[in-house]
Design a protein around this nucleic acid. Sequence first.
DNA 1: TTTAATTTTGCATTAGCTTGCGGAAATTTG
DNA 2: CAAATTTCCGCAAGCTAATGCAAAATTAAA
Lengths: 249, 249
Amino acid sequence: MLKMERQAYILHQLNLHNKILSADIMQQINVSDDTIRRDLQELAKDGKIIKVHGGALSPSYHNGHHSQREIYAYTQKRIIAKKAASLIKNGMFVLTGGGTTIIELARALPPTLHATFISGSIPALFEYSNHPNIEVIAIGDKVAKNSKITVGLEAISKIKELKVDLCFLGVNAISLENGVSDNDWDVVKIKKAMVESSRRLVCLTISEKINSQQPIQVCDSKKIDTLITELPADDLLLQPFVQAGITVI
Amino acid sequence: MLKMERQAYILHQLNLHNKILSADIMQQINVSDDTIRRDLQELAKDGKIIKVHGGALSPSYHNGHHSQREIYAYTQKRIIAKKAASLIKNGMFVLTGGGTTIIELARALPPTLHATFISGSIPALFEYSNHPNIEVIAIGDKVAKNSKITVGLEAISKIKELKVDLCFLGVNAISLENGVSDNDWDVVKIKKAMVESSRRLVCLTISEKINSQQPIQVCDSKKIDTLITELPADDLLLQPFVQAGITVI
DNA sequence: TTTAATTTTGCATTAGCTTGCGGAAATTTG
DNA sequence: CAAATTTCCGCAAGCTAATGCAAAATTAAA
């Protein structure tokens, strides 16, 4: 990875998260702490970042501009995103839905990852297309106003043509008995198609939504291969899922 | 392999991957590192690439990633966007391409506007989907890395199914003799389809690009219905277009 | 076609950049 | 205060860049 790329990545991450830890970056792009520190030093000299002990802050963060980091349960979703990102290997085909957790996943993808991402979520596509090395395929159709994902027969038929390695689904409600459920008819139809078109289904959710239910079912819990929450895998809340044979991370 | 061929290859690789390593290219086309370095130097002198230690980056890489407010000729593009927005009436179906000018158009849309926007540009779709009242339809396909629009047969065939009221095209080069032209094969194919699928073609460009030409033609100037630049319609530079029967705003 | 002029290429050498490491100093945290 | 991190400093290794020069290739002219 070139120096400039690395610095671009650092700035990008800083724009997204308003703060970064040297240790995080160091791990994500696999270079020594000194290198990162030198990068931060250079960027700080140009006033592009504010260097602090252990990492850096976005200048806009300090300058009053409180950018909208108003995502609900932001910290938890970042943890989930990091866990999810670790499942993706080079060369994989990955199908993803939308939602804030998926966006965090998109932002947490290591810049060295070479994979193909397929999605109908406009914000997710936007994030993916900012990544230097991933191939992006957009599922076209009418964009649903609230969820900002494409919905409709076109989209469904496109998804059905696929058979991808991994499918990441940010879920609104999940329980062992009722599986994954949601409250938007069009979105559920899309999600159903996604579940069918993937070899491995990974559900992402904050623990708060565990054991909840919504009116329309997306899929049975038998379909779930992996469940990711912000909790450690041995948390009591998750044991029923472990016992049901779901890989819990 | 000729020098020009080699440089074309380098540019092509850069368009595909947004970055290249001198060492890679050197191996791929079997010439010495010096030769590659000299090529990079020349290309960098013309501003076609950004040379860095160890290789080169695409100029779009630097412009597109961060520093979103550093759009080239930002003020002029805002003027263009406002003029363009005034053409759109409630209930219209509008097809748009990508590029910074189109993004500004998306941001300049009055919040009360009720219309349907169709696009394959990920950033444009992102902006459209943030608008409270417009319907958004996404053209799906593989997303081109540099331009961030969907390209491919899928996208083209979807566009060909349409017949919209208005088509906004941000153009890279335009002249009366050569019409609209561009330098990316895939993008040109998409733009051609867009031109064919619209009743009225509106070209947006900063005046700097008037009377310039790129290798691949999108359409003849006869196809252009309206031309929007940041200049007033009576500017001398624009008179040839007025005389050719094009509505100039 | 042959010859001369010009450009381009490859090599050797020297110079410069970037990175990671060890150890000492500084900072944070409990 | 003490332990754990983080930072700073200098240095060596490994690449990458620049320069001058001769060989090779291309172009222009005879």
